[in-house]
Amino acid sequence: MTKGTMGYQGSEDYIASKPLMEIVNVSIVLSKPLVIKGEPGTGKTLLAHSIQKALGKKLIVWNVKSSTKAKDGLYVYDTVQRLNDARFKDKDISDIRQYIKLGKLGQAFSTDEQVILLIDEIDKADIEFPNDLLNELDEMSFHIPELDETVKAKHRPIVIITSNSEKELPDAFLRRCVFHYIEFPDEEMMERIVRVHFPDIQEKLVRESIKRFYWLRQIDGLRKKPSTSELLDWIKALAAGGVDIEKITGSLPFMGTLLKSEQDTDKTSRFLASNSGSFSFRRR
């Protein structure tokens, strides 16, 4: 990669803000893990896929769950299988190697070319999880005591880590990473994003629905504000249902695609009934 000019520039189906592109490139050059935080639906996970497309590298996805342990990402030693095989004479169990299975991180280290490793929703796991990966991500190597072998990355993978801030990440971990918070896109940006997904949908419909969407987001006290993916679903539904554009300004058809909880639906309905779309003074 030549300095500054090349590198990641966003991809066809993903619109990255300029600062984000810069930061992606810097983290690639310095080979530091990039931690991406932001509201749900701001395209954190998609970023990794977009980098994959733009740079044409292989993407390894490690989906983190609440039960995921750091060691799972390195390797798993299938002791039970070995124990089971030990009962029968037909297999040679002296070779431990066949019971060692590399995890996602291990795979990313052992490939012959540079890959992109996405550690998705790292905050889902136990609070200690990121700390357990500190050294591995720093050195890009780990030791398998069973084999007395060290797996070392041939090419340091590009590591993208996403977090929903369900749990805070430990400072020691963050210190080794580059951090970026994806802001919720503004109306203009949102229009570009929608355009990328639905290039054929009538412009007026897009504009009106986006306007409506931001109106909905500013209602105070919604349990879950609708996010980009919900807007995309909604627009899709509107287009497919052939809803009259006038109707969007007066009411909210297909509200279910935007709001996912009963309380929010109730609240919005009341809001719609009380001021029917226009602003009016309400008694406090």
Partner: peptide, 8 residues
């Protein structure tokens, strides 16, 4: 910001 600040 990306390097020095690790929380929004």
């Amino acid at each position: 910001r990306a390097f020095l600040v690790k929380s929004e």
